[in-house]
């Protein structure tokens, strides 16, 4: 799994790429939680995620809840088809705000 973090005009874009599974989700969790502590509205770009399992979804939930607690917006954007399928199966598509593109995600959090 790879990741990128960009600051875009007062918002943070965190992109995860590759497989987010039992092996890599501890890293994903750390990346997401660290990003939340920067106290900026956040867009998580999932366009490059080829595979995500329940541990990956759990990391997203944890970061989402932490962001919400500190009062910052948190959206998922450009979710890849395979990641969206897992979010649907886990019924998390109703929990997260999901935007079709990073640009729309940024517009939403600002």
């Amino acid at each position: 799994m790879k990741h990128q973090i960009k600051e875009d005009n007062g918002a943070l874009v965190v992109a995860l790429e590759g497989d987010v599974d039992l092996k890599t989700s501890p890293d994903a969790r750390k990346i997401l939680l660290d990003a939340v502590t920067r106290n900026l509205p956040m867009v998580v770009d999932l366009s490059g995620v080829l595979y995500i399992d329940s541990s990956g979804v759990a990391s997203l939930i944890e970061a989402f809840q932490k962001a919400r607690k500190s009062g910052h917006k948190f959206v998922l954007a450009a979710v890849s088809e395979s990641a969206l399928r897992v979010l649907n199966l886990a019924r998390m598509d109703k929990v997260f705000a999901i935007c079709p593109s990073v640009a729309e995600g940024l517009a939403k959090v600002r």
């Binding site: 399992d53 329940s54 541990s55 979804v57 939930i61 809840q65 199966l89 886990a90 929990v95």
Partner: peptide, 18 residues
């Protein structure tokens, strides 16, 4: 229980769902 939104414990739900 999926009502209870929290990280962890999703795996068994996914298996049964699929």
């Amino acid at each position: 229980n999926l009502e209870d939104i929290r990280p962890g414990g999703l795996g068994t739900h996914l298996i049964r769902e699929i």
